[in-house]
Design a protein around this nucleic acid. Structure first.
Lengths: 147, 147
DNA sequence: TATTGTTATACTCTATAACTATA
DNA sequence: TATAGTTATAGAGTATAACAATA
């Protein structure tokens, strides 16, 4: 160990969050391979399904993607018929992205499995504990909106 | 929204973990640009500094890296003099990785700043809340070791 | 035969900057 | 001049499979 003592890696928030995500993503990745969309497209669909039509900047932020990545992803998703894009008439620089029936169907097709994966994890981890964890994560995101 | 209601994305554990990590990594990334190592190398150094010499499989798991990625990263880190590698005499398939003084110095050089970043976040978020969050993340990693 | 680590491939994300169109 | 989104580029991670060396 170095002289200046850092926290144990298990108590390092960035590392702890990354390990937790790897833990949780295992079964989710298995689900996604059968869905025809990757993790990123799945996030885009989820965010659009939840928040309604969004411009790309906001969509990128909520889906944790860079704008250049999103540009490429949306091109593919448009080709697959999962989303549509339209110029915002109020500000013609903006492009508004809308989920289509095809996109909604992708979510619908995997919603049961997604819920089941979560339910299994919650059963193993504890319902109350899970709610507390999600509360704390939400609060963390509020503390530092992006910095 | 689709008919089968999934959780709000803020209550989706994979998405919540990803957003939390993005939130937390902002200042950490700023620190790392001045350190000469990227996120992945920093994790490798932290894990080695904490756990002592490790074989590559274990190191990969603890640092959340794939073995092929680790192979490439270690080659670079060996060239930079941050780590050394030696064949395990007890099992000559195994390669044991050890952090060097140079590697330890990289950690030492940024330990203060790393602690300060954490302290600021903790102050904004709440000390007790932070401890609870870290406890819950540790427990989550114990529930499902990797599945 | 199984395991550890390496190499190779294809795909994708990140980070950044330059660029276009619009405001 | 500033902003939204696109394009291009370099660097790097992921996933996977094939492979060599060793067990």
């Amino acid at each position: 160990m170095t002289k200046t003592s850092l926290r144990r890696t298990a108590r390092s928030l960035p590392i702890a969050l990354l390990r937790a995500r790897e833990t949780v993503m295992g079964p989710v990745r298995d689900m996604l391979v059968s869905s025809g969309v990757n993790e990123q497209k799945w996030r885009v669909l989820r965010v659009l399904d939840e928040g309604g039509p969004l411009d790309q900047s906001l969509l990128a932020e909520r889906a944790c993607l860079q704008l250049p990545s999103l540009t490429r992803i949306l091109r593919a998703m448009e080709d697959q018929g999962m989303v549509t894009r339209a110029t915002d008439p109020a500000d013609r620089r903006r492009s508004i992205v809308t989920i289509s029936d095809v996109g909604r169907q992708v979510i619908e097709d995997h919603a049961q499995e997604s819920l089941a994966i979560f339910a299994r994890l919650e059963a193993a981890y504890g319902r109350e504990r899970m709610e507390t964890l999600l509360d704390l994560l939400e609060e963390l995101n509020r503390v530092t909106p992006d910095a």
